[in-house]
């Protein structure tokens, strides 16, 4: 059959010119789930001001703003716990829907709303995280950065300290970039 002939000639041709054949493929992960998992892990290194939670079992509220595919990654966090705290996730279309929370994740579709979102949260002890690269430089606390195939992050300590959020120094060591005292 001609299709078969052509297929095998094409494939063999490609192999001959040096295309590697992957007999065993490297394991990769869904980018959006990974971003959610990193956000969850970063939260482990954050201490909220006293009185933020009623008790040790009070839920940790994560708000995800933006309706793109990144938000879908957070579904994997539903039903999880951070220590003893159950995680609650709210998906917001805009800040009009915001009714408080401990972490706010800004998806990259909200790039043009960043200033507005951060203004609303100006004095609230809310950990702000985003996959918008410039987020930390623009006053957000944690930017997730895609570097080649890995996800890394940058943190802005000025932003977190201004609302009394304490980010552990262990996290400073893992960050690709740490912004403090304005640079």
């Amino acid at each position: 059959m001609r299709i078969w002939n052509l297929l095998h000639k094409l494939l063999l041709g490609l192999i001959l010119v040096g295309f590697p054949l992957p007999i065993v493929a490297a394991e990769t992960y869904d980018e959006n789930q990974l971003k959610a998992a990193i956000t969850y892990n970063v939260a482990k290194f954050v201490k909220w001001p006293d009185g933020t939670f009623v008790d040790a079992k009070a839920p940790l509220v994560i708000c995800v703003i933006g309706n793109d595919r990144v938000a879908a990654g957070f579904e994997s966090l539903e039903g999880q716990f951070l220590g003893e705290r159950p995680i609650k996730i709210y998906y917001l279309a805009s800040m009009d829907d915001y009714q408080g929370g401990h972490i706010l994740y800004v998806t990259h579709s909200k790039d043009y709303h960043v200033d507005e979102i951060l203004t609303v949260l100006q004095d609230s002890p809310v950990l702000t995280v985003s996959d918008i690269e410039s987020f930390a430089r623009r006053g957000g606390m944690v930017s997730l950065l895609k570097m080649r195939k890995n996800i890394r992050f940058a943190i802005n300590l000025d932003a977190s300290l201004s609302v009394d959020l304490k980010i552990s120094s262990k996290l400073h060591a893992l960050a690709t970039e740490v912004i403090r005292n304005g640079d």
């Binding site: 990769t28 990974l34 895609k146 195939k149 890995n150």
Partner: peptide, 26 residues
């Protein structure tokens, strides 16, 4: 035959481990 080995879920991994993972486009 090469099925992915999900030895550990993303939620069980440490931040250091997560940072070494590779992502794929959907």
């Amino acid at each position: 035959v090469t099925t992915p080995v999900w030895s550990k879920g993303l939620m069980e991994m440490s931040l250091e481990e997560l940072m070494t993972l590779q992502v794929t486009s959907a």
